[in-house]
């Protein structure tokens, strides 16, 4: 094949390979029993162990959103409780899921790619396969499943902690009292917000883990390749989160 054709075809080949990988993963779901323990371990690594950093990021996002909203409210005609009405939906609909997603891109995406990449270049994946194990089922299903199941959990944590961070910032800066903050949040509360965020977090959880698994699983070329995969997984996860964020907003709002 000429070089140019190869260049153009590459993204499609990647998407095709990704699709095949995911359908293989899906097919091996019926063997889930075999991978139960692995799924557990991944849920702890991806979910539980990410709680502190996600909480930290969420608390600051909530606080910053509050302070900046307060700063932008210059008109005396707008009551300060509006801050609550801006911050809470911002967190539930956007920041809760996206901040969690970005944090996990770095923390989980890179880690998955590094793990699987190392396993690939040191032939551990071949070793699994050679034993007669389904390496996709064994390595990818637990990670993607853990992503889909645990990122929503992290999202909920991020929202709650983000709101608390916002309330704390509001109280500390004196922008608005917490009862007023909550009053504003309640008045403008739209039940769709949390569900929308939850849907996003499912999608992000899938994207981060699936794409990182894909990149890691097909790592080529030694330690160097592992490094490349790691970076690519983090970057691709972030990019896909941004795209998915927009697409979901267009589709669901």
């Amino acid at each position: 094949m000429p070089q140019v054709v190869l260049r153009v075809a590459k993204p499609f080949m990647n998407i095709g390979r990704f699709t095949i990988l995911m359908s293989s993963a899906f097919m091996s779901l019926r063997e889930l029993k075999t991978y139960r323990q692995n799924t557990q371990i991944q849920m702890v690594r991806i979910g539980i162990e990410s709680i502190p950093i996600v909480a930290l990021a969420a608390a600051f996002s909530g606080a910053v959103t509050t302070v900046q909203t307060a700063y932008q409210l210059v008109s005396p005609l707008i009551p300060p409780k509006i801050i609550g009405a801006v911050v809470v939906p911002s967190l539930t609909m956007e920041l809760g899921a996206v901040v969690t997603g970005f944090i996990l891109s770095g923390r989980v995406g890179a880690r998955i790619a590094a793990e699987l990449g190392t396993m690939r270049v040191t032939e551990q994946i071949d070793a699994l396969e050679a034993m007669g194990l389904n390496s996709i089922g064994y390595l990818i299903v637990p990670r993607v499943l853990a992503g889909i199941l645990m990122v929503p959990v992290l999202y909920v944590a991020a929202c709650v902690i983000g709101v608390l961070g916002g309330v704390a910032a509001a109280e500390l800066t004196g922008a608005v009292s917490s009862p007023e903050f909550i009053l504003g949040a309640r008045e403008h509360f739209d039940i769709f917000g949390p569900y929308f965020g939850l849907i996003k977090s499912f999608v992000f959880g899938f994207l981060i883990t699936a794409v990182s698994c894909h990149i890691g699983y097909f790592t080529e070329g030694g330690a160097d390749g592992v490094g490349r995969s790691t970076t690519r997984a983090a970057v691709m996860s972030c990019v896909l989160i941004l795209i998915a964020d927009l697409v979901l907003a267009i589709l669901l709002l």
Binding site: T118, T122, E123, Q124, A127, A130, M131
Partner: peptide
Amino acid sequence: FGVLFQGGALFD
């Protein structure tokens, strides 16, 4: 089959 890979391929 039992396979001994070049680097051992032990699960780290």
